[in-house]
Design a binder for these strands. Structure first.
Length: 154
DNA sequence: GCCAACGTTGGC
DNA sequence: GCCAACGTTGGC
């Protein structure tokens, strides 16, 4: 079992919106970064733990918990000319972009990024590294344990 | 709105 | 295959 942090802009898909979706499950469309795509395609397993993170908003931070709910499959938005995620260079018979489905499991208190930064136990978290812009990053088992059992219960 | 950091593009 | 220019991300 692996763990991940996945960023979502709450205006586009917040933890509340995910919990309100059918089966509390949303397709994680729109990833247009190869490293993030590869994490979904090659790294994720059904049932992996996900920290649901709100980014590009007034209060960036962890907003809930979720789990990986599907294997990776082609992202339909890459072929949709009306979508802002349309990729004219992607071919139908060789889709460039894939994504998984994510099932929200619970809304938590919002743990701001500043609070994450303040924890010595989380010093090595990928998301806190200088200049990190990846929308999907691996989380270690120790980081997951610390966040879910310590931070979210305080 | 600023800006640091990073990824991608494309000319050579 | 190098690298400058450009675009994007995302916290502040």
């Amino acid at each position: 079992m692996n763990y991940w942090l996945m960023k979502s802009e709450p205006e586009e898909c917040s933890i509340d919106m995910a919990l309100a979706a059918p089966k509390k499950t949303v397709p994680w469309t729109g990833v247009r970064n190869y490293q993030a795509r590869n994490f979904m395609r090659d790294g994720m397993k059904l049932g992996d733990g996900v920290l649901f993170y709100h980014s590009s908003c007034a209060e960036p931070g962890i907003a809930g918990l979720a789990e990986v709910a599907s294997a990776a499959y082609p992202d339909a938005t890459q072929f949709d000319k009306k979508s802002k995620y349309y990729d004219p260079a992607s071919k139908k018979d060789a889709p460039r972009w894939v994504h998984v489905d994510v099932r929200a499991t619970k809304k938590t208190r919002l743990v701001p990024i500043a609070e994450l930064r303040a924890q010595p136990e989380l010093a090595d978290m990928v998301i806190l590294k200088r200049g990190n812009r990846l929308s999907i990053t691996p989380v270690s088992a120790a980081e997951w344990r610390f966040i879910t059992s310590k931070l979210l219960n305080s």
